[in-house]
C-alpha cells in the first residue's frame, strides 16, 4: 500500500532566542538560554486513498502542529510532508508556501474559521476562482453543488456566517475545503466545538464524503469515541512523538502502549459503568523540558529503570501495528 499523503520523519521545533539585553545580563548572572520546544519530534505517518486515520492525543501533544504540516500550512524544521511524492509546501523565506490545492484543512472553531465579513457563497467560491477550478459564470453552480453535498441549502449562499448555527458553520468549513476538489483532508478537531447530537450528524457527513469521493482524511481529535466511529487506523501521539499506530479495532481492543491503554480506559462506557475510573495519572510534562528516556515514564504504571534512560523506538508488535514501549522488547 503506497501512501497518498505521507509524513516523512517530520520534526517541528519552535525556538525563542533571548534578546541582546537578556544575553548581556545572562552573561553577568545566571545565563539566559535559548528555549527550544520540540512540538513534533521525528514523526512518520502515511495515509492511503480513501483511508481515514485518527490522530489522537492530549492537548499540547503536537497533533495540531502535525496536522498543519500535513496540510502545508507549516513547514517542518526537519523531514517532509509529501502528496504523491511531491512536497505540499516549499520554503519561502522561512515560511511555508503551499504548493498544492489537493490537501485541504478543516478547522476546529466553526466561528473563528470563517471570515465574518464575507458571504458564505463568496467564501466557498474564493479558492476555486483563485485557482481557476471554476469561473465566474459557473461559480454559483460549484458553490451550490458543494453546499448540497455537505447538507446545506444552496439558497443560503448569500448569508453571512453569523446567521448560521454552529453545526451549519462546520458544514460551511467542510464545503469550503471540498470546493477545491481535494484528494486529502486534514480535519483538526473538526467537531470538538459542537454539541454531541450535532457532532454525530457532521461525522456522518465525513463518512459520506469518504465513501463518495475516496478522500484520504487525517482526523485529529482528543476524543477516542469520535475517532473510533470514523477512522480505519489510529495514531496515538504523546509529547511530539507517535507512540502507537494500528487498525482502530485492534488498538482499541488490545492497546499495546500503556499510554493508549490509559486513554482508552478514560473513556466512559456504558458496559463499564461500575468499573473504577482510571484516567492517565499526572500532568502532561512541559515540552520545553521533556523527561529523559521514554517521555511517558513519569506517568507510566509499568515504568522500569530502563525507561528512565533509554527512549524506546517504534517496532512492530503485531501485523500492521507498531508501538514504542520497552515492554514489547522482552
Amino acid at each position: 500500500m503506497t501512501a497518498l499523503l505521507a509524513l516523512d520523519h517530520v520534526s517541528m521545533r519552535f525556538v525563542r532566542r533571548p534578546s541582546l539585553a537578556e544575553r548581556i545580563v545572562g552573561a553577568l548572572a545566571r545565563g539566559a538560554k535559548t528555549e527550544i520546544v520540540r512540538a513534533v519530534d521525528g514523526v512518520s505517518l502515511g495515509l492511503a486513498r480513501g483511508e481515514v486515520v485518527g490522530l489522537v492525543g492530549e492537548s499540547g501533544c503536537g497533533k495540531s502542529t502535525l496536522g498543519r504540516i500535513a496540510a502545508g500550512l507549516l513547514l517542518p524544521t526537519e523531514g517532509r510532508a509529501l502528496l504523491d511524492g511531491a512536497p505540499v509546501a516549499d520554503d519561502s523565506d522561512g515560511r511555508a508556501a503551499k504548493r498544492t490545492t489537493a490537501v485541504q484543512m478543516i478547522f476546529q472553531d466553526p466561528f473563528a474559521s470563517l471570515n465574518p465579513r464575507m458571504r458564505v457563497g463568496e467564501a466557498i467560491a474564493e479558492g476555486p476562482l483563485a485557482h481557476g477550478l471554476t469561473d465566474r459564470a459557473k461559480a454559483r453552480d460549484t458553490v451550490a453543488a458543494v453546499m448540497r453535498r455537505v447538507g446545506l441549502d444552496p439558497a443560503f449562499a448569500g448569508r453571512y456566517p453569523h446567521q448560521f448555527s454552529g453545526g451549519q458553520r462546520a458544514r460551511i468549513g467542510i464545503a469550503r475545503a471540498l470546493a477545491m476538489n481535494p484528494r486529502a483532508i486534514v480535519a483538526d478537531e473538526a467537531v470538538a466545538a459542537l454539541d454531541v447530537s450535532i457532532q454525530a450528524q457532521v461525522l456522518n457527513t465525513f463518512l459520506d464524503l469518504r465513501r463518495d469521493l475516496d478522500l484520504a482524511i487525517l482526523f485529529i481529535s482528543h476524543d477516542l469515541g469520535v475517532v473510533g466511529h470514523l477512522a480505519d487506523r489510529v495514531a496515538i501521539m504523546y509529547l511530539g512523538r507517535v507512540v502507537e499506530t494500528g487498525p482502530v479495532g485492534a488498538v482499541f481492543a488490545e492497546p499495546a502502549h500503556p499510554y493508549t491503554r490509559g486513554l482508552i480506559e478514560a473513556v466512559p462506557r456504558l458496559d463499564r459503568r461500575r468499573a473504577s475510573f482510571h484516567p492517565v495519572r499526572g500532568e502532561i510534562p512541559s515540552p520545553l523540558d521533556p523527561p529523559r528516556g521514554c517521555h511517558f515514564h513519569p506517568r507510566c504504571p509499568h515504568v522500569m529503570p530502563r525507561c528512565r534512560e533509554e527512549a524506546p523506538v517504534l517496532r512492530e508488535v503485531a501485523p500492521g501495528r507498531v508501538a514504542s514501549c520497552h515492554l514489547h522488547e522482552a
Partner: peptide, 11 residues
C-alpha cells in the same frame, strides 16, 4: 529587570 532597564536605556 536589569535586562529591561538596559534595553530601554540603550534604546
Amino acid at each position: 529587570m536589569i535586562a529591561f532597564l538596559l534595553q530601554r536605556l540603550a534604546g
